[in-house]
Design a protein around this nucleic acid. Structure first.
Length: 882
RNA sequence: GGAAGAUUAGCUCAGCUGGUUUAGAGCACCUGCCUUACAAGCAGGGGGUCGACGGUUCGAAUCCGCCAUCUUCCACCA
């Protein structure tokens, strides 16, 4: 079959992916082999592939393919996450575009739309992963809201409730007025935001509710909340404000009377030292309110608009109200001054809306015991973090974990299985039937229709924390006494988890908690944290910046293998990734290099009667050792999750060692055949290289592996065993390196003197140079090599290969002055170096303290240096006499 | 404000418990080549007082202290 001069990725990738699917090569079933398991970090069901996914899933795929080729039963479970807030807000937006408001729909109607949306857009991202070559076991695809997994979530809720770890409480929560739900502390991003510091006068009341002419000044960034003020608070140690003790002041505009109280919370040197206390709209104020038994007056509704309790500006959005009230305060003479001010403001991670602290009833899961268990898992090393530094972050969070607010005021998600009796009491059961039974125990006459289920759904992480368990056995979570099914027993704990450090608490920590609670052990052995993908100049990839390329376009242009290489090349473990398209081009170039080396090998004609050349024999001996050497390094890199280092080692083995040295050394002259032994070895090495690189470049390797010989239907490189490192003689590597350096020396001279590559040079070597690699030097350098006791020619260029002196005679081509100058420079350097070494050796304390091996090495440096100096001097002498 | 990590060639990074490193790699750069596998290529080449300053040591990119800069995480003063 004729091979094109350039590798065309687009042509082969779809073909082989279809082939892999057809033969279910990605599918895994428990058997007697050692399992290797990865669960995918489930992307949002309605998500679209971005560069972060490309990085993460490339790494996952490399690990899983590598394990497969090591003979393990590799299983990569794919799936998607229902992503409550993200998905619901997308559905709401779509309905809005259709002219439908969520408020006009019943829960059932809304969910119908949501499921339609999910069917339409859900799993696009999984299709996209196929383009990347991901070898997921698609038969095991899971969705966090599929019936079985939802059941698992409900069961765990009931389990923890009955254990007494889930409780309902009124808390100040982070309210997202756009998504209309509470979000957890972790989903709030604090950003420094420019605002204003308004200094407001509160006049002292005369006791009858009338203002006197005395006043105090408070500083606030939120003047629209003054109507909810419950007190003015000063520090008890602040003498400036002692005159206020026992006084009452009037809230501007509405003239409501509130007391002045004292609390240590107030910082004396911040603002004016007077704090307006608004328990309903600030976390700290709420706590002060609790201590001083203050009234809680909630004047902002769920949409962030002022309600009728505010008395003024009713129905206005909080930010509009702020502008308006400032004007009103100014007109009323209460505005003393306005300062520019930058303060941290919380934003919703999902909607970017400014978070409104809001009091509401929420469900919480106690974290103390779970956090303690999960900390131990990592501290004991049963789960390892790579890089290790994340253990610190993890520990800090675990030691300070606050109870987890698990309720969300949404419809898309698992509905909380709490059922309210008409009198407000409630029962928690997995099904309405069980709930009715439980309710009857409290209230015998109760009927099914009297029960009302809680309106809220559970936080998405409350389902994804079960992922490593529930994808295999959804029956188990919530029923830790159940025997794990066959799959769970075999695949759990999973081997490695690859994810971003941004979800270490959301997801990783909580999976560990669930794993310990329900399985009694860690959910994975290693967590490899990738960096964040940034653009060339270090900015995060984002839609708004438009600096994020579409991975599918890149795959189309350069091929999936090139994209995978490009991502891995720049992803040293634990660092952020600076994405640069140049790296993908490098990947494409590598594909092409592999392709062309195959064209060369494939183009050889074999003649069984031809004898093997000595150069080929030497090259084979060397490459055999080199391959083993590199395989051992690659294994080590994989063990340490140094994927980019593993890739680079193979890259250099393929390009520099195999193509640039090995193939050139064994390559017959144009039109000549190659002997059988060399051909077989060459093809064998090529296959070994394909296998080595297959986890990183699955497509081109399958294409070429299939092309190498007639393969049977159903054969694949995917299940070939990766080459194993064999013991080798390190001297073989050293000898070949000597040859390489000799060739480089000769080539250097050629380059310098502008001698055509076709002109054969005479290279003389002094000393006992290893004979076996001499044919390689002759072939690669286009030289004849002669071992001599002394150089007879005067005119020429000498150079050193380690301790061997070499000389190329060049009558008439040498500029004596130049050569002398060059040699003198080398000589000066050597003399300085020698002086340094001798300085060390003559230092008694060095000789006394340093280990023998180090001293021995210094002595070797000394003698090597001496012989180099000697050589340089004799060359100089010869040149000067010429 | 607290914590963790980083700082090595133009860029991205190796360099693990101090001495086989006279500081390396890939890319980029410069010079010469369309040499019948490959110009997405081949051959050759230049480039770093290892962030600053102290200390420990016979010996420091490597260990310690301090400073500077950067990144991330946590907390957050109305």
């Amino acid at each position: 079959m004729e091979l094109a001069a350039k590798y065309n990725a687009a042509e082969v990738e779809d073909k082989w992916y279809a082939y892999w699917l057809k033969h279910k090569f990605f599918h895994s079933e428990p058997d007697e082999r050692e399992p290797y398991t990865i669960v995918i970090p489930p992307p949002n069901v309605t998500g679209i592939l971005h560069m972060g996914h490309v990085l993460n899933n490339t790494l996952n795929d490399v690990l899983i393919r590598n394990a497969r080729m090591h003979g393990k039963n590799a299983c990569w479970v794919p799936g998607t996450d229902h992503a409550s807030i993200a998905t619901e807000s997308k559905v709401v937006a779509k309905l809005k575009a259709m002219g439908i408001s969520k408020d006009d729909l019943t829960r059932e109607e809304f969910l119908k739309y949501a499921w339609e949306w999910k069917e339409e857009h859900g799993g696009i991202i999984l299709k996209q992963l196929r383009k990347l070559g991901a070898s997921c076991d698609w038969d095991r695809t899971r969705f966090t809201m599929e019936p079985a997994l939802s059941e698992a979530v409900i069961n765990t809720f009931v389990y923890f409730y009955k254990k007494g770890w889930i409780y309902k409480g009124v808390r100040m929560v982070n309210w997202d007025p756009e998504a209309l739900t509470a979000v957890s502390d972790d989903e709030v991003i604090h950003k420094d935001t420019k605002s204003h510091f308004y200094h407001l006068r509160y006049y002292i009341s005369d006791g009858q509710g009338n203002p006197t002419d005395k006043y105090l000044v408070i500083a606030t960034t939120r003047p629209e909340t003054i109507m909810a003020d419950a007190a003015i608070c000063v520090n008890p140690n602040d003498e400036r404000h002692h005159w206020l003790r026992g006084k009452k002041v009037l809230i501007p505009l509405i003239n409501r009377e509130i007391p002045v109280i004292e609390d240590d919370y107030v910082e004396m040197d911040f603002g004016t030292g007077c704090l307006k206390v608004t328990p309903a709209h600030d976390v700290h104020d709420y706590e002060i309110g609790l201590r001083h038994n203050l009234e809680v007056l909630d004047i902002i509704d769920e949409h962030g608009k002022l309600n009728e309790k505010a008395r003024i500006l009713v129905g206005e959005d909080r930010f509009v109200a702020r502008k308006k009230i400032v004007k009103m305060l100014e007109e009323a003479g209460n505005l003393e001054k306005v300062e520019e001010y930058t303060s941290p403001v919380g934003y919703s991670e999902r909607t970017n809306a400014v978070i409104e602290p809001r009091l509401s009833a929420q469900w919480f899961l106690k974290m103390d015991t779970l956090a303690k268990m999960a900390l131990e898992t990592v501290e004991s090393g049963r789960t390892k973090f790579i890089p290790e530094k994340y253990v610190n972050t993890y520990r800090h969070w675990m030691e300070n974990a606050r109870d987890w607010c698990i309720s969300r005021q949404l419809w898309w998600g698992q509905r909380i299985p709490a059922y309210y009796l008409p009198d407000g009491r409630y029962v928690v059961e997995a099904t309405p039937e069980a709930a009715l039974e439980a309710a009857k125990a409290i209230c015998p006459d109760i009927k099914k229709e009297d029960l009302r289920q809680d309106e809220d759904v559970l936080d998405t992480w409350f389902s994804s924390w079960l992922w490593p368990i529930s994808v295999f056995d959804p029956e188990l979570p919530g029923h830790p006494d159940h025997q794990p099914n066959k799959d769970l027993a075999y695949y759990y704990p999973t081997s490695d988890l690859v994810t971003g450090p941004d979800i270490i608490f959301f997801w990783v920590a909580r999976m560990i908690m669930a794993g310990e609670e329900f399985m009694g052990r860690e959910p994975f052995s290693n967590v490899y944290f990738t960096g964040i993908v940034r653009d060339k100049i270090g900015r995060k990839m984002s839609k708004t910046l438009g600096n994020s390329p579409n991975p599918l376009d890149l795959i189309e242009t350069y091929g999936a293998d090139a994209v995978r290489i490009g991502m891995l090349l720049c992803s040293s473990a634990g660092n952020d990734i600076f994405y640069d398209e140049a790296q993908i081009k490098q990947g494409a170039a590598f594909c092409n290099k592999i392709w062309n080396s195959y064209r060369l090998v494939k183009g050889f004609t074999v003649d069984e009667t031809v004898a093997q050349t000595p150069a080929a024999a030497a090259a084979i001996r060397w490459f055999d050792a080199k391959l083993s050497d590199t395989v051992a390094q690659v294994e080590d890199h994989y063990r340490k999750f140094r994927i980019s280092d593993a890739l680079m080692a193979i890259y250099k083995l393929f390009w520099d060692d195999y193509c640039a040295w090995y193939l050139e050394a064994i390559k017959p002259a144009f039109g000549q055949p190659v002997d059988k032994a060399t051909y077989d070895a060459t093809l064998g090495y090529f296959e070994a290289l394909l296998k080595l690189i297959h986890p990183v470049m699955p497509f081109i390797t399958e294409e070429l592996w299939q092309n190498m010989e007639e393969r049977k239907e159903g054969e694949t490189i995917m299940y070939a065993r990766t080459p194993a490192a064999k013991p080798f003689d390190p001297q073989v590597l050293v000898n070949f390196e000597l040859a390489e350096e000799a060739v480089n020396g000769a080539r250097g001279i050629r380059n310098q003197k502008n001698i055509a590559p076709k002109e054969t040079l005479e290279l003389k070597v002094k000393g006992d140079f290893p004979t076996e690699v001499i044919p390689v030097i002759e072939k690669m350098g286009n030289v004849t090599v002669e071992k001599v006791a002394d150089f007879s020619e005067k005119q020429g260029v000498g150079f050193m290969v380690r301790t061997y002196e070499m000389f190329v005679a060049l009558n008439g081509l040498v500029n004596v002055e130049e050569e002398i100058a060059k040699l003198e420079k080398d000589l000066a350097y050597q003399q300085k170096f020698l002086a340094g070494v001798r300085g060390k050796l003559s230092n008694e304390r060095f000789v006394a303290h340093a280990p023998a091996a180090v001293i021995e090495n210094e002595r070797k440096k000394e003698s090597d240096s001496l012989s180099k100096i000697e050589s340089l001097e004799s060359q100089l002498k010869a040149l000067r006499n010429s």
